[in-house]
Structure formats: structure tokens, C-alpha cells
Simulated assay, not measured.
Amino acid sequence: MFYTDYKLQFPVRVETPSPVFARALQQAIGGVEGEIRVAMQYMFQAWGMKGPGSARYRDLLLNTAAEELGHIEMLATAVALNLEGAPLELQEEGAADAAVGSIMGGRNFRQFLSAGLGALPVDADGVPFDMSHIYASGNIAGDMYANITAEGTGRTLATRLYHMTNDAGMREMLAYLIARDTMHQNQWTAVLEELEAENPQMPVPNSFPQAEENQEFSYAFLGFTADGAEPPAGRWSEGESVDGKGTFTTRAMEPMGDVPTPPAPRPGTYPQTSQLPDQ
């Protein structure tokens, strides 16, 4: 159950409205790096969290998910404020104004046509967020790694938006969001650190017995160059593995299987006659 106090999490102000920047802000709302993504990801991870001792991690996820809903509200408010002042009719005098010119130039027609100069659950190209980038595996370590990635890409996006604008109000809001991304990267890493203190977390899932995997390839870095040259060397190719359970090696990969022989097509699937076996 969720509650609201009708107030923004952080002040949102725009000194110089810009429909161009309003479109850019849509990426932070409905883009794959955006706030809808992380809000839904943390909620579904929390709702699917099981096992003894998981309650506080579930609470952590839900609190952060609620925060991310507030970020969506902030950004939607910022979009509306950046669209403020654009003419309601594209043909009226003043259509040469920079604001409506941006709309007429295709910056984001739907913010005008579909939302009445408001935000939409879409990215900067107008593509609706379809939930396909929600990662909630039910494995706490796997989910935490996914969350660190989500916050890393989100912070990268926010810093790019920060440098796209000189508007003091927008920079103030983005500086706050960037700081929260910093915290969230740290808190998800802290969960992994806490779990690691109890027992090793890698490889994920650590509940699967490694004796049942093909251990010849567990820590081998494989090269797939056509000439069979050695693949690039680095920390990943020699020495103790990061999980401390093996030693990295390097080898050029050679095919171990035969040329695949697909089964014959069934007549009822209507291939061409040349595909059918001899009758």
C-alpha cells in the first residue's frame, strides 16, 4: 500500500522553458535507464523476495522503489514546466517562437498532441516503456548486481542531461538525482558486501553445486579469433579467479561439435518441395 503527501521529494523549478530539454528528460522517465525502470525493478524484486532473513532486504527495496516513484513525479513536473509557454495552436501567430518551433520541428509531437504539454511514460524517441528491462530473478545477489548496473547507467544519463542544460533549476534537480544514484549504487554494493561476509556470493547462484558444471570451462577465458590467436590478456586471463575458487586460464576455442543436421521439415508446415525428403 502506498501513500502520498502531495509534495515533491525535491524542489523542481525551470527558469527558461525548453521543449527540446523536455524531450531529453523523457529518457530519464521512460528510457531503459530511467526512473520507471528502477521503480518497477525494485518493487518486483521486493515482492518476489523469499527466504529467512530477507525481510530487511525487501524493506530496503520497497523504500527505494517508493523514492524512485517520487523521482518520476519530479521529472514529469520538470517536463511540464519546460513545455510551459508553448502555443496551444501550431498555426497561431508566434509559431516561429523557439518553443513551438521545437515541437513543429519534431522534437516530441506527442507531448503536445497526446499529453497537452505534459510528460508521457515514454523515452526521448517516444517509445513507450514496456517493462522488458525489469530484472527480478528472485536471486538476491543477481538482483543486486542488476541494480548496480541500473543505477550506473541511470547516473550516466543524469550527468549527460546535466551538461545538456544551463538552466539553474534543472541543474539543481539533476544534481540531487545524481547524488541519489551515488547512494543507490553504494547501498546495493553494501548488500553484496554484507552477504559476502556470510559466505561467498560468486558464482551466482551460489546454491548450485559447481561440481555439476563442466569445470574444464569454469575459469577459462576463450578466444574466438579466426586465426586462433591468443585472446587479450588481463586480470581475467591469469591468476586466481575473483571468487577464489579457481585459476584463470586462456585458450583458443576450437569447435567441439559436428556440423548441425536439422531434422527434415514436416509436410504439414508447408516448406518448398525441394526441402522435403525424397518420397
Results as ranks from 00 to 15, higher is better:
58 R>Y: 00
131 M>T: 15
242 V>H: 11
252 A>Q: 13
31 G>L: 04
211 A>Y: 09
147 N>W: 02
235 R>L: 02
235 R>P: 15
146 A>R: 06
214 N>D: 15
260 P>F: 08
204 V>M: 12
274 S>R: 04
2 F>S: 02
229 A>G: 14
235 R>F: 14
208 F>T: 05
110 R>D: 15
174 L>H: 04
59 D>I: 00
244 G>R: 12
118 G>W: 05
65 A>T: 11
169 G>I: 06
70 G>V: 07
153 T>F: 10
147 N>F: 01
147 N>E: 09
153 T>H: 13
130 D>N: 12
203 P>E: 03
37 R>N: 01
71 H>Q: 02
185 Q>V: 04
144 M>W: 09
249 T>F: 00
223 G>A: 14
42 Y>I: 00
238 E>P: 15
58 R>W: 02
6 Y>W: 01
151 E>S: 13
277 P>A: 09
40 M>E: 12
29 I>L: 06
29 I>C: 04
39 A>C: 06
144 M>T: 07
132 S>R: 15
193 E>T: 11
182 T>Q: 03
155 R>G: 10
87 P>A: 00
244 G>P: 14
253 M>S: 02
54 S>H: 08
158 A>D: 12
35 E>R: 14
192 L>Q: 03
150 A>C: 12
141 A>Y: 03
20 V>Y: 05
34 G>Y: 00
176 Y>C: 06
11 P>C: 15
2 F>I: 12
111 Q>E: 13
184 H>V: 05
93 E>F: 03
38 V>R: 08
163 H>I: 08
156 T>R: 13
204 V>F: 03
199 N>W: 01
248 F>P: 13
88 L>A: 11
128 P>A: 14
228 G>E: 15
98 A>Q: 13
63 N>V: 09
75 L>C: 04
238 E>V: 13
100 V>E: 01
213 E>M: 13
200 P>Q: 14
166 N>H: 06
230 E>M: 05
143 D>Y: 12
113 L>E: 12
240 E>T: 13
232 P>D: 01
90 L>G: 03
189 T>L: 09
55 A>M: 03
245 K>T: 05
204 V>A: 06
61 L>R: 00
32 V>K: 02
66 A>P: 01
153 T>W: 07
259 V>N: 09
104 M>N: 07
278 D>R: 10
236 W>I: 06
116 G>C: 10
194 E>A: 08
180 R>N: 05
174 L>C: 03
24 A>C: 11
240 E>G: 00
71 H>Y: 00
39 A>E: 02
235 R>Y: 04
121 P>A: 10
258 D>V: 01
240 E>W: 15
96 A>M: 08
154 G>R: 14
83 L>C: 04
99 A>M: 11
74 M>P: 01
42 Y>R: 02
114 S>G: 05
31 G>T: 00
210 Q>P: 04
188 W>G: 06
64 T>G: 09
194 E>W: 11
38 V>I: 14
64 T>E: 14
47 W>K: 06
207 S>R: 05
153 T>N: 15
268 G>V: 12
48 G>T: 11
47 W>G: 05
109 F>H: 08
35 E>H: 07
164 M>V: 07
5 D>K: 02
25 L>N: 10
237 S>R: 11
32 V>A: 05
236 W>H: 08
103 I>W: 01
169 G>R: 03
64 T>R: 09
101 G>H: 15
24 A>W: 01
128 P>T: 07
146 A>K: 05
142 G>P: 06
133 H>R: 02
63 N>F: 04
82 N>E: 12
211 A>C: 15
197 A>R: 05
167 D>S: 08
